[in-house]
């Protein structure tokens, strides 16, 4: 089973962080939460590995 990678692998995290924040521009709190939920589901599907996803859920709860 693959292990969740928590080491930095993005070559330019600032670009993506900015894009993430910009996606929420002008949204209400409810709209933002819904966007986040959709985004998590999309990324979860892309990851595809149930073991990794479960580890990610645990890491986020810490």
């Amino acid at each position: 089973m693959a292990n969740l990678n928590l080491d930095p692998i993005l070559s330019n995290p600032d670009d993506l962080y900015e894009a993430l924040i910009a996606a929420h521009d002008g949204l209400t709190r409810e709209e933002s939460e819904a966007l986040n939920a959709r985004l998590i589901l999309i990324l979860m599907n892309h990851l595809g590995d149930p073991g990794v996803i479960r580890q990610a859920i645990e890491a986020a709860k810490r």
Partner: peptide
């Protein structure tokens, strides 16, 4: 996250 997940530190 930066406290336990290294990927968050450069953010």
């Amino acid at each position: 996250l930066a406290r336990h997940a290294p990927f968050a530190r450069p953010m």
